[in-house]
Design a protein around this nucleic acid. Sequence first.
DNA 1: ATGATATGTGACTAAATCATCACCTGTCAA
DNA 2: TTGACAGGTGATGATTTAGTCACATATCAT
Lengths: 107, 107
Amino acid sequence: MIDDDLVFKALADRTRRQLLDRLFDRDGRTLTELESEFAMTRFGVMRHLRVLEEANLIVTRRLGRKKLHFLNPIPIRLIHDRWIDKYRARRAKALAELKRELEEEAR
Amino acid sequence: MIDDDLVFKALADRTRRQLLDRLFDRDGRTLTELESEFAMTRFGVMRHLRVLEEANLIVTRRLGRKKLHFLNPIPIRLIHDRWIDKYRARRAKALAELKRELEEEAR
DNA sequence: ATGATATGTGACTAAATCATCACCTGTCAA
DNA sequence: TTGACAGGTGATGATTTAGTCACATATCAT
């Protein structure tokens, strides 16, 4: 079950978005591995991971004393579908790509 | 310019998401029109609209003493692109559709 | 077995956020 | 021109949230 409020509240924090970035880059990381990349205590990172898990943005699997974290793309897709219909999708995609190109050019 | 933090903070509030829903349903509404659909004071709704506008999730156009509000799909598209690559997009889309079908069936 | 490793919990403080209020400015229609 | 309408501002109180801490449990390697 996907709860709107949990998903969006989870995404509202910068640290949690960065955690998703890390997992997008490579899945299956442990808490300790993730924690080492942040200037925050382990407890802070753990709390954030828990919020992400409760929002179903990540799923976990235990492996011995380790806990592996994986990105779940479904809630993100649902956000997209909520406010972008088929017509808009094409236009939004084209504009987003244009935006990226312009920003690359500006460097 | 699109600021991550503004976008996600804007989306974190349920009222603001409902405002986007209204505009997704039909663009070009005025403040007064939107306000009448919420159990909140006009000031509250106005404040939320302002947050959405600052996050670039809506764009506005003045027409006399009226201010028309339009949905901007680009930030939503960028959220999608941030955590869903081409491979995942197909899978996430299929799963999201499956999820919707199952929920319809459950009725 | 035992020390090191990996993850987990409840309580506390500081900071951010929501909703409301009284009051203000600009535009329209007759 | 005048009254009604549409939108706008800054300050305030109540609620929520982020980050930290001391302390706890479970698993591994030797």
